[in-house]
Write a protein that binds this DNA or RNA. Structure first.
Lengths: 116, 116
DNA sequence: CTGAATCCATACGGATACTG
DNA sequence: CAGTATCCGTATGGATTCAG
């Protein structure tokens, strides 16, 4: 039994799933693994997501220390998202999930990895 | 874009999370990784779960080919659950998640692994 | 013993309109 | 550009009761 941020987990796997389990989070991390992106770029890169959902998932990842949000005080505003060092430790885990998921789906890994 | 069982996935990671993302699924798989268990044993081993939830998660895992459900036509009824060969391929993935989750929580891996 | 049925609360995901 | 505010439908998780 573990506690973190007021949440209770029965095992550490549950905690990990809580961090990456959001509907768009794996995709966001995959994209950010390739480099810094701004909000509008992410929105274009994730077909089907809307601003509210994207914002929410990004905020949660930020609170968990996985990504970094940098606001540039310009007009028009510019906000850039990048993966943190701690967030990078998630990439191998995502790759393991991707590999297994591909087996499950009976297909190869998808194009979202591109140059990875 | 992938499809399986009428569901649409944006990436294979999403599909994998769909299989193991249930609230009790990681724990169930962890337990079954150590050997066959019957319904009541699982219920005792998973503090806080109720029959409905346990049944639901077990059925989903069964439909995904991860576990096997064996009914013995006795009185009183006996039902045993075991992990399939395909399900075993998930164990390393769960271990990766556990390891990362422990790092995230700032603790060691939990007792649910016991003799693993 | 192993569930199925019912009812319920909340969380999650999303469409749309609006703002500094 | 990068969100926020509002509203809404559905899914998820759970307590309780009943049944073969």
């Amino acid at each position: 039994m573990y506690r973190k941020n007021g949440k209770t987990y029965h095992c550490s796997v549950e905690a990990a799933l809580d961090v990456i389990g959001g509907k768009w989070k794996p995709l966001i991390l995959w994209k950010l693994g390739d480099g810094v992106m701004r909000f509008s770029e992410l929105q274009k890169a994730l077909p089907g997501v809307n601003a509210k959902m994207l914002t929410k998932q990004l905020r949660e990842l930020e609170e968990d220390g996985i990504i970094l949000r940098t606001v540039y005080p310009e007009v028009p505003p510019r906000v850039e998202y990048s993966i943190t060092g701690f967030g990078m430790t998630l990439i191998p885990v995502l790759e393991a999930l991707c590999e297994w998921g591909s087996k499950y789906l009976g297909t190869g890994c998808n194009e979202d990895q591109d140059d990875k």
